[in-house]
Simulated scan of single mutants.
Amino acid sequence: MRRIHNVFHLWTALAVRLLLLGVTMAVWPSAVHADAEASSDVPVTFTLSIKTSPSAKYETSETYDRADWRRAWTKAKTAELAEPSSVYTDTYIEVADEGGKRQYAMRADGVLFEAATGKTVTLSVKVRKTWRTNAAKLRKRHYGEIVDWDEAKSRLPLKAVVAVVDMETGLSFRAQRRAGSSHADVQPLTREDTAVMKQIYGGTWSWKRRAIVVVPEDGEQRVAASMHGMPHGGDGIPDNGFSGHFCIHFRGSATHGSGKTDLSHQLMVYKAAGRLSELYQAATPEQLAEYVFDALHQQDEAVLRAALQGTPSETLQTFLTWFAKIDALRIASMKPGDPHDGQVTAEVPLKVVWNGRGGGVRLESVRLLFVRENAHSPWVVTSFETGKK
């Protein structure tokens, strides 16, 4: 009887363990195999990707099948964010196991974030360090290098043919530099190239700026740049289906009319280099306000989200509401900011003129509030207040 009693308890304990394991599976599918020793036989792959936005079709990725990552995955710690805020990243991980595939964004510290659930997933320090290292290598392959205009124009002499790669769609076409002293005046090489360029712009020519990578014929260097999509001015290549030329800007290039750098183009150059966060972290509140509203004007959500890194989710949603209703926008007036040395809060009042997607023009007073942890930390937008005038 004693032996029967012991067997009963053994089976009871096993049943309880299986029940608990079932609960674990319901909460976190990738933690099915709780025994780390047995996990090496379970098929789990990790695909690390770099792209400028979650919806970008152009990405550089690599898939890994590593036993140490699989073991670490079974021990992953999950948590819910108590105070959700906007997270901008260009790094994503897809985890594929017997339960299917799950998509995560990866923060700068290697912690994974699932936007749909608001949960974070944390693996060991060693694995996260490896992820960051591998992501840095992929980033070098994906983005272009920032090159000042004085150097870019010597690398791309007149009549040089380059490949232009759009950072969102991944579409590419050939173009030739025909002129331009302050930036490159460029034309698609053939009718086929013109058709691809127009496809990038959704079938309609536009002045909107887009982040691109310019690749010379030798393919030795990928250069971060920005283009618009509006044929204008002089022509030079017959029968290419493009009446005029378009412009490509690099860091420090200027418009031929004003002789000044174009903010929209410069932001796109940094996007094409994967260095938006670096630019924003060094910005004053006034500069950051300009970046935010220029992103609204250009209708580039990735540039907007990068500028709003760390912004409370409620404030981010206010900006996204504006994003959905605006067709064009410009800052009508903004007072020069006082020095913010030593301050940890700031306020930027301004007026903007915007065109709605359904028509109509409005002048609106706006007030942005900023905070930072200390005098050396980057500024973060915390509030977006409006009032019609």
Rank of each mutant, 00 (worst) to 15 (best):
D185P: 14
S53D: 04
V186E: 07
G229E: 05
S39W: 01
D68E: 04
K101L: 00
L189C: 11
E373M: 08
Q343G: 07
I212R: 03
L279M: 12
S383I: 06
Q343S: 13
A163V: 15
W205H: 12
F319K: 09
V87W: 02
L138K: 05
A272V: 05
V42T: 12
K389D: 13
K198F: 02
A160K: 15
E347N: 06
V214Y: 03
A56E: 08
R222I: 07
E37K: 10
S86T: 02
F46H: 06
E301K: 15
A332N: 09
H249V: 10
Y201H: 14
S383Q: 14
A31G: 02
D294Y: 13
L304P: 12
L14R: 01
H297G: 12
L304E: 08
T122D: 08
T91D: 01
A38G: 04
L279R: 07
K57Q: 03
R155Q: 13
A283D: 13
D109A: 00
I248F: 11
R362T: 15
M334Y: 09
R102G: 03
Q298N: 14
T382M: 13
Y88F: 09
S49F: 00
G118T: 00
D65C: 00
W354D: 09
E286F: 03
A82S: 02
L369M: 15
R362K: 15
S243K: 14
T194I: 05
S333C: 05
G110P: 01
F46I: 02
L296I: 10
A273F: 15
S181K: 11
V353L: 12
K159D: 14
V381G: 09
E83M: 01
K126S: 01
F250G: 08
L138I: 10
D166M: 07
V215Y: 09
A306K: 13
T345V: 14
R362W: 14
P84D: 02
R3E: 02
H183M: 05
K140P: 10
G241W: 14
T169V: 02
L138S: 02
T284E: 08
L288W: 13
R210K: 12
G110S: 03
L316A: 09
G110V: 01
S40W: 04
I248N: 06
Y201G: 11
P349S: 05
E385S: 10
V165Y: 04
G236A: 05
E373W: 07
D294K: 11
S61P: 00
S365P: 14
L263V: 13
S243N: 07
R70E: 00
K271I: 05
L14A: 03
G233M: 07
L123D: 06
V381Y: 10
A76S: 02
G252E: 04
D239W: 13
H228P: 07
D185Y: 06
P231A: 05
